[in-house]
Design a protein around this nucleic acid. Structure first.
Lengths: 202, 202
DNA sequence: TTCCTAAACTAACACTGTTAGTTATAGATG
DNA sequence: CATCTATAACTAACAGTGTTAGTTTAGGAA
């Protein structure tokens, strides 16, 4: 009856599958154990509590997210990279609603550990914006604007806020937003007198 | 023992107070009844279930939110109104984290009722952007961009994503974002050849 | 004063996450 | 090959949740 081959990995994968099916970041320990053909207390041999399992899924999600983003911009720079990043970001959020929601709800304000895990996400956005040669502070500002825009769009799509006024296409809205962001970025760079402000425009 | 004077209003107020204290949108029916000096089942004389109470708080929150926003732009138009709206939005979200989180998590994609309740929020943003004389579709697009930006910022502040790169001030970031938005908006209006594209700049 | 309705109650159910203590097997040891 | 041990499963139980059914009680209307 013991050692039914259950491991941390297996549990995490099952939990991820569960979240992917429900589209919600909530995990029910008893439901997951049921799916694994095991009683609930067995999971406590591998995780101290639900929160710890949540953190593991959180970490897994961020790694997957960052990997997809990184791939999307692999052969691109500047404006092209920004556009690709934005698309991949939106794509991931729509395809992985449960995981994305978890990513955007786990760290509370002073969760040092949670923020450390999310760091690669920050760094990737920073690396893309660093290509324009701005100073560190400006990069920090524009990275915030960029991610706020991306997350804000996803959130409102989740909420269904988009289908209640006019016949405006959601994709068009996103394009306008990114165009707006890039124009603002170029202006900032022009103002600070850096070389080659505009990247590749399609 | 009956008629202890409990009403829908009183329950909602207590729940709102509870949410304001915890900063989380979750309501524990038993905790709220405890605070009201009443047993949990008593609440079911006034609400069919927790979800219905949640909706009531949701509605209350949106009304309060919209009222504050409306006041903030009462004597302003165009750019000035946009800036004031953005400030009031951020202000409300920071001061009422629990309620704001509830507002941004209640309607699921096809919750017709939830979206109907949230409509005034949409309409207010639309009314501000309509002052520039754009066509209906453009207003829809820019309203989405505007609100995405606002919510995205709040979300990331909640998450604590802002204190991990550079020494960039968060308020500065918000100003840059709004400036970027306004510039993009003005460009759009210029391109479509409308009169008086720029509003009042400070 | 009586009656009836509305709003409180108690008791219970099914469901959580979690802990303590028990059992059984897989793999290492002799 | 037999035995021992560590590990990972188990059962039983607790405290907590939202919720329902059925019961009691008091305030306002007749």
């Amino acid at each position: 009856m013991p050692s039914k081959k259950l491991t941390k990995q297996i549990i995490i994968e099952e939990a991820v599958a569960y979240i992917s099916e429900t589209g919600s970041p909530e995990i029910a320990i008893r439901e997951i154990s049921r799916r694994l053909g095991v009683k609930a207390p067995s999971l406590y041999n591998h995780f101290r509590n639900t929160k710890e399992l949540q953190y593991a899924i959180y970490q897994y999600s961020i790694e997957k997210f960052v990997m997809e983003l990184r791939e999307s911009i692999a052969d691109k720079t500047r404006d092209e990279a920004i556009v690709a990043f934005a698309e991949a970001y939106h794509d991931f959020a729509i395809r992985n609603r449960g995981l994305y929601t978890l990513v955007m709800s786990i760290p509370s304000n002073n969760d040092e550990n949670g923020n450390r895990i999310a760091l690669p996400l920050l760094e990737l956005a920073v690396s893309v914006l660093s290509e324009y040669g701005m100073d560190r502070t400006s990069v920090a500002h524009w990275q915030r604007v960029f991610r706020a825009l991306l997350h804000g769009f996803v959130s409102q799509e989740y909420l269904g806020y988009f289908y209640h006024y006019g016949d405006a296409d959601v994709e068009d809205s996103r394009r306008i937003a990114i165009r707006c962001f890039l124009d603002g970025l170029h202006d900032e760079i022009d103002r600070s007198g850096l070389p080659a402000s505009t990247g590749v425009r399609e």
